[in-house]
Design a binder for these strands. Structure first.
Lengths: 157, 157
DNA sequence: ATCCTGGGTTTGAATTTTGAACTTAGCCTG
DNA sequence: CAGGCTAAGTTCAAAATTCAAACCCAGGAT
């Protein structure tokens, strides 16, 4: 009932108003993040995805269906020259918009988890300079995590 | 074996060099993201976490142990005035660094998922202006997602 | 005609998750 | 001091999920 400490850095809100709780429902699965990662990499075919991450076919089938149903992935037929029609999976706009989340997660994993080799991360296409994820205000200047709180967005200025 | 399309927006790298694959191993669970969300909100006690998100005790116990083992969460005793010693869980530095990922996920959920009410999100503490997650270069100017690629960070300039 | 391959579905065994019951430790009350 | 209460777990059997392997099917290639 009561709060446990007085260290309320961030006020609490009901879960159903928080996109994070919903997002957790979508992405909180061992394979879903891996599958979406593959789709970002341009791996589009069922068998390619399965082979690269080692997910069982039945699970891949189920997860892709669910992602399609949720509008995150789209399935479309295509025909390789002189082959029969096959299918490929690709991210919808909604799915593509997960990019920033994945980059943030990548950055975190690079920094804190045990990588086997040199890390990879986002660089600017033109000059290859390193990039990082940050919080910006409306004017485009950076805001530190300590200077924020969560608030109802409908009534903030 | 071969790539499925020629639309290689992002080059492929082996999973063991990618923090994202590791991060997926840590966060790819229905309850873990929810638990970490609670910890961010300042909910620190076992029973409080359990009650707010409805996770079974056995699962909460297992997940917290695993998060502690991975250095994401720390457990510490505390004594409420005139009560016996209890324990509270809080995010370690590593855990706290997930903040940016969670904010990105929150933003995505707010934009694309079906919220029950008005969304909540990060605002600047001082003036309550809305904030958003973005990619920055070293000078602090914003870079669009279309202008990036993933690269080996050890050899980029 | 038969084989091969991509994209699945089915199946039954192994694993995980679940909720309920039980445990433990210490404070508080009578 | 006996008994109750609570937070924080643990244990257990039943239910749900996952897994690997087998099977299916369509169309092209041999």
């Amino acid at each position: 009932m009561s709060n446990s400490t007085d260290s309320e850095i961030i006020p609490r809100f009901p879960p159903d108003r928080c996109g994070l709780a919903l997002a957790a429902g979508v992405l909180g699965d061992k394979w879903v993040l891996m599958i979406i990662r593959q789709l970002f990499y341009g791996v589009a075919r069922f068998e390619d995805i399965r082979a690269e991450i080692g997910v069982p076919k039945s699970v891949l089938s189920a997860r892709l269906s669910s992602l399609i149903e949720q509008g995150i992935v789209a399935k479309r037929p295509y025909k390789p020259e002189g082959g029969r029609t096959r299918y490929e999976y690709h991210l919808s706009r909604t799915g593509f918009d997960l990019a920033m989340s994945l980059l943030a997660l990548l950055e975190w994993g690079n920094r804190h988890l045990d990588l086997a080799g040199a890390p990879i991360g986002p660089v600017r296409r033109s000059d290859r300079s390193k990039l990082r994820v940050a919080l910006l205000d409306e004017e485009g200047s950076e805001v530190a995590l300590q200077d924020i709180r969560l608030a109802d967005l409908s009534k903030s200025c």
